[in-house]
Simulated scan of single mutants.
Amino acid sequence: MTATGTIRYWAAARSAAGTDEDAYEAETLAQALDAARARHAERPEFARVLLRCAFLVDGSPVGTRDHATVKLVTGGTVEVLPPFAGG
C-alpha cells in the first residue's frame, strides 16, 4: 500500500531542491527519492547532492541498507542530510 508523508531537505539538499520539503507518496525510500528526482529534474544539482546524502526515516538512520527495502509509512518523515563539516 502506498504511504504518504514528508521529505525534509537540509543544508545543501535544501538549496539544491529549492524548497525545505516535499510530500511523498511511495512504498519505499527508493520510490520516494525517484519521485523527488523527477519532481526536481530541472535542478540537476539536486540529483548529485542526493548521491552524497544520509537519510533518516522516522528518526532511524538508513545507513547502507538498500533504499528499495526501506518501507515508508503514512504520516512518516524522511530527513535528507548532506555531509557537512564542523564540530
Rank of each mutant, 00 (worst) to 15 (best):
59 G>W: 03
43 R>P: 05
20 D>P: 10
2 T>D: 05
61 P>C: 00
55 F>C: 03
71 K>V: 14
39 R>F: 09
86 G>S: 00
9 Y>W: 10
37 R>V: 13
55 F>Y: 15
4 T>S: 13
1 M>A: 12
50 L>F: 06
45 E>Q: 12
18 G>K: 11
53 C>R: 08
40 H>F: 07
43 R>I: 03
33 L>I: 08
1 M>D: 09
56 L>N: 07
49 V>L: 03
84 F>S: 04
50 L>Y: 02
15 S>I: 12
46 F>A: 00
83 P>Q: 10
59 G>R: 08
28 T>Y: 12
36 A>E: 10
17 A>N: 13
10 W>R: 04
10 W>Y: 15
61 P>A: 12
10 W>C: 02
72 L>C: 06
9 Y>K: 05
40 H>M: 11
31 Q>F: 00
18 G>D: 10
47 A>T: 13
14 R>M: 00
40 H>C: 11
2 T>P: 15
49 V>H: 05
51 L>H: 05
35 A>P: 10
50 L>S: 02
14 R>N: 00
32 A>D: 09
78 V>F: 10
69 T>L: 15
1 M>F: 07
55 F>I: 00
12 A>R: 06
85 A>C: 14
18 G>T: 14
64 T>A: 12
9 Y>L: 01
54 A>H: 05
71 K>S: 14
67 H>A: 08
6 T>C: 11
53 C>N: 06
55 F>Q: 01
22 D>H: 14
53 C>S: 03
7 I>D: 11
18 G>I: 12
14 R>P: 02
33 L>V: 09
85 A>T: 15
52 R>M: 04
63 G>Y: 13
79 E>Q: 13
78 V>A: 11
22 D>T: 15
38 A>R: 13
3 A>K: 05
58 D>Y: 01
30 A>G: 06
11 A>G: 13
65 R>Q: 12
43 R>K: 11
52 R>C: 01
4 T>I: 11
53 C>W: 01
16 A>G: 02
63 G>R: 14
4 T>C: 10
69 T>N: 14
81 L>Y: 02
9 Y>Q: 10
18 G>M: 11
15 S>Q: 13
56 L>Y: 08
11 A>L: 08
85 A>Q: 05
27 E>Q: 15
86 G>H: 02
2 T>A: 04
16 A>Y: 02
13 A>D: 04
79 E>S: 15
18 G>R: 13
74 T>M: 05
20 D>C: 05
4 T>V: 10
46 F>H: 05
38 A>M: 05
76 G>S: 13
15 S>V: 14
63 G>V: 10
17 A>F: 13
51 L>F: 00
70 V>I: 08
35 A>N: 13
7 I>Y: 03
27 E>R: 14
27 E>N: 10
38 A>G: 07
16 A>N: 02
10 W>F: 15
64 T>E: 12
86 G>K: 01
30 A>C: 12
51 L>S: 00
83 P>W: 01
31 Q>M: 14
70 V>W: 01
37 R>W: 01
77 T>W: 07
28 T>N: 09
69 T>I: 07
65 R>V: 13
49 V>W: 04
47 A>M: 09
73 V>H: 11
49 V>T: 12
5 G>M: 09
86 G>R: 04
